[in-house]
């Protein structure tokens, strides 16, 4: 009944919307693969004469150091905030202490604040501890402002683990750390994947913190790309190839780990 013939018209809006979502992707790749001689804006929609890599080469020479900065930034930022989030989530879900129910929503609110309301103190603070301009300060910033979402994800996950399991471990003489290490941690590998993907994507795609806190040689890819796009000298075709290079890592993560990616997205809106 569901697949009766009359329902095939439903594919029409679906295909039209597919075009809407794919057109920017198409134009980005279409342009990137053209040779320098065929990149006129007026022939934007014509297919390339073959697969040329001029644009990618040019974009890569300009952006390579910044791609590396991004990699050096996102790996520690996501690992550290995932570890801390896991410990916080464990304590807040299973080892409640006085005031922990008040503290949790207070931490959560940090996820929503517009960072413009902390930007000036953040810069002053980073200057005062000499972390302004470089990557360590940006990593620290991502770790701390990532804590609300990582704590939330892990807390919701651990809340679903039966308390009897913890009680049983306690009767067997396991303390808090042993319970965490032997029981909760192995159970939470899927949550780690979710949180790591989320933090990786957030840090890779961030622009605001990076543009405020880093000096040009430490710019991650987003800031470098935006700077490239704003300049009059660098041709639009090179910008397109650069945009593609900047998008590839998170797109790959999405394509291969999409299920976990989606779970991370929903964690922010719905409760586990």
């Amino acid at each position: 009944m569901n697949m009766s013939r009359g329902r095939y018209w439903l594919y029409i809006p679906l295909f039209l919307m597919t075009l809407f979502y794919l057109v920017p992707m198409f134009i980005m790749l279409n342009t990137s693969f053209k040779s320098f001689s065929e990149v006129s804006l007026q022939t934007m929609w014509n297919l390339p004469s073959g697969l040329h890599f001029d644009n990618f080469k040019e974009a890569y020479t300009k952006l390579a150091p910044h791609l590396w900065n991004s990699i050096k930034l996102v790996i520690p930022a996501s690992l550290i905030s995932a570890m801390l989030g896991s410990i916080n989530g464990f304590v807040l879900a299973k080892w409640k202490f006085r005031g922990s129910d008040v503290i949790f929503p207070l931490i959560l609110f940090g996820m929503f604040i517009p960072y413009q309301s902390v930007l000036i103190p953040l810069v002053q603070f980073m200057r005062s501890i000499d972390l302004y301009g470089g990557l360590p300060g940006l990593i620290l910033t991502h770790v701390i402002y990532g804590l609300p979402i990582t704590t939330l994800t892990f807390r919701n996950y651990y809340a679903g683990v039966p308390t009897e399991l913890i009680e049983a471990a306690r009767i067997d003489g396991a303390g808090l750390l042993r319970t965490y290490w032997d029981i909760l941690l192995p159970l939470s590998i899927p949550s780690f994947v979710v949180v790591l993907i989320w933090q990786f994507t957030a840090a890779w795609n961030d622009f605001l913190f990076a543009v405020v806190l880093t000096s040009p040689e430490n710019w991650p890819i987003t800031v470098a790309l935006n700077n490239m796009a704003g300049s009059q000298i660098i041709a639009w075709n090179v910008q397109m190839a650069g945009a593609f290079l900047a998008a590839v890592p998170t797109l790959l993560v999405y394509l291969f780990l999409g299920r976990y990616f989606l779970r991370g997205l929903l964690a922010g809106a719905l409760k586990g």
Binding site: T18, L22, I27, W204, F207, N226, M240, A246, V253
Partner: peptide, 16 residues
């Protein structure tokens, strides 16, 4: 297809 733009940054989206 509908969800993939979520994975990329506003900067990439903006440039394209």
């Amino acid at each position: 297809i509908f969800l993939f733009p979520m994975a990329i940054s506003f900067i990439v989206t903006g440039v394209v």
